[in-house]
Computed example of a mutant assay.
Amino acid sequence: MRPGPTAYRAGATGPTARPAGTSRPATEERALTSVAAGECYQPDGDHEGERTADAPRLWHVTLSVSGEAAPLKEVRRALQQLAHDHPFLLTSRYAVDHAEIRYWEEARDLHDAAAVALRLWGEHRQTAGLPPWEIVGLEVIDRGTYHQRIAEGYGPPPASPVGVHPF
């Protein structure tokens, strides 16, 4: 039986430190493993704490679409339907001839996240009643880059309020 999350006793250090609540001998060494930002902890026996190559990551996606003008009410209703069908959408901004959709995608790598994003508008055009606009922009960045941009003040403002809003 493997112990749960390790909690070390205050003041206990070095190779004699023992995780609280375990029966491990005090002389047994146990290495600490860290997980870098954006990596997923995937315990799998011998490689506990290592990130597997196929582990999914979070990617921030901004999809921009545009085309011929459509009635504003219809654009709003369609984006609301898309958000209802796919609650992962953070925010959508729209005008009569363009829109921007921002959301988080879980994918193995950037290529997978981009492929899903590039299919989003076309695959849901009929079901959500989206305008026949084309994709004119796509940005896919990893979670660390997104948070670094926000911290440095040059990234997009956080998606607040979440939902569908006019530009």
Rank of each mutant, 00 (worst) to 15 (best):
P56V: 13
L118C: 01
P132Q: 10
R108V: 15
A117F: 03
L90R: 04
T62R: 14
V75I: 08
L118V: 00
L90K: 03
R108D: 10
L130A: 05
L58T: 08
S92W: 04
R125Y: 00
R108H: 06
A117P: 05
V136R: 15
E68Y: 12
A128P: 07
R93V: 07
V140F: 01
L138V: 13
L130T: 06
P71C: 08
H124S: 10
R76I: 02
V61P: 00
A99I: 11
W133H: 01
R108K: 13
S64F: 09
W104M: 06
W59G: 03
E139R: 15
D97K: 07
G129Q: 10
R125T: 09
E74A: 15
D85N: 12
L138Y: 09
L118W: 03
D112S: 08
L130G: 01
I135E: 10
R77G: 02
S64W: 13
S64M: 12
L120Y: 01
A114I: 02
A107H: 03
Y94A: 07
D85Y: 04
F88A: 14
L63P: 01
L120R: 10
V116L: 12
E106A: 15
A117Y: 03
A107D: 01
L79N: 03
A114V: 01
H111S: 13
L89N: 02
L120E: 01
E100D: 03
L63Y: 04
A99G: 12
W133M: 00
L138P: 10
D97R: 11
P56E: 13
T62P: 00
E106R: 14
W104S: 06
I141F: 03
W59V: 00
G122H: 04
G67P: 01
V116H: 11
D112A: 13
E74V: 07
E139G: 08
G129F: 02
S66E: 09
A70K: 05
D112N: 05
H111F: 12
D85S: 12
Q80H: 04
L58N: 06
D85A: 13
Y103P: 00
H86G: 05
L90G: 11
S66M: 04
A117E: 04
R119N: 13
L138Q: 14
S64I: 03
Y94P: 04
V61K: 02
K73W: 05
H60S: 11
E134R: 13
